[in-house]
Amino acid sequence: MAASVYTQILWWLGIAAEILILARSVKGNSWQKYRAFYLYLGTLLLIELLRFSVYTLKPQFYRPFYWYTEFLATTVAYAVILEVYSHALVNSPGVARIARTFLWGVLSVVILKTTLNAATELVWSPATTHAELERDLYTVQAILLAGVIALVAYYAVATGRNLKGIIFGYSTYVYASVISLAFGSLPGYGPRPGWRLVQPIAYLAALLIWSCTLWSYSPDPEAETESKIDRDYKLIARQTRRALSKARSFLKMGGEL
């Protein structure tokens, strides 16, 4: 009963925070900039409301409904990761090229592993349980997020407050999801109510981060069109040219100036 009360509190807090973030995005027009992210958030809001309706009206259908909608949410989340990639690396074409190689690499490994599993197992199933499938989906997301964060950090790519918030918030949620689902898919851990609360709490934390960082639209810092070294070199060259022309005019006037 106590767990149910906590779950309901988390549920309502989550819905309230989602509505707040979506309302702010409409007011500040930031939804046009991060469409995939707000689509994800809108989908989650809709799912939460539908879940609540099913939970209240037809509680016996709640469990299967939960898992199907959970897969839908996890799939839509991939659009958010692709949006993060495109937004973060829009001004760094070389880094974007490396990111594409990384994305294709991860995709190839996932396809290869799935094909190998299908070929070696007698009865093929994508995963033994719902929790395992969800855990695997979040693990791939964690690898993709780690990749984009590593590239952004390594090449010191400048990112705006909104994008930083989306990345931090979603990373928090994905991190907690991988850990909780990994433990949750172990035999004996599943029925424990404790691990089930980890994901909603992490999601609430992510919503809190998004509420703060997406409160108003903040554009991504524009990339410098030329490197600082080139710019400094041009500045020195300009100063030298000026000094030379001064010296030339001084000589022309017979050294009187």
């Binding site: 855990r135 964690a142 690898i143 964060i149 950090a153 931090f168 990373s171 991190y175 850990i179 689902l181």
Partner: peptide, 21 residues
């Protein structure tokens, strides 16, 4: 418990790169 290692490894990687960032 051994089957947890790859997932914990990926989660730790994500945590480490986020902390570095």
């Amino acid at each position: 418990m051994r089957q947890l290692l790859p997932y914990l490894g990926v989660a730790s990687l994500l945590l480490a790169v986020t902390a570095l960032w």
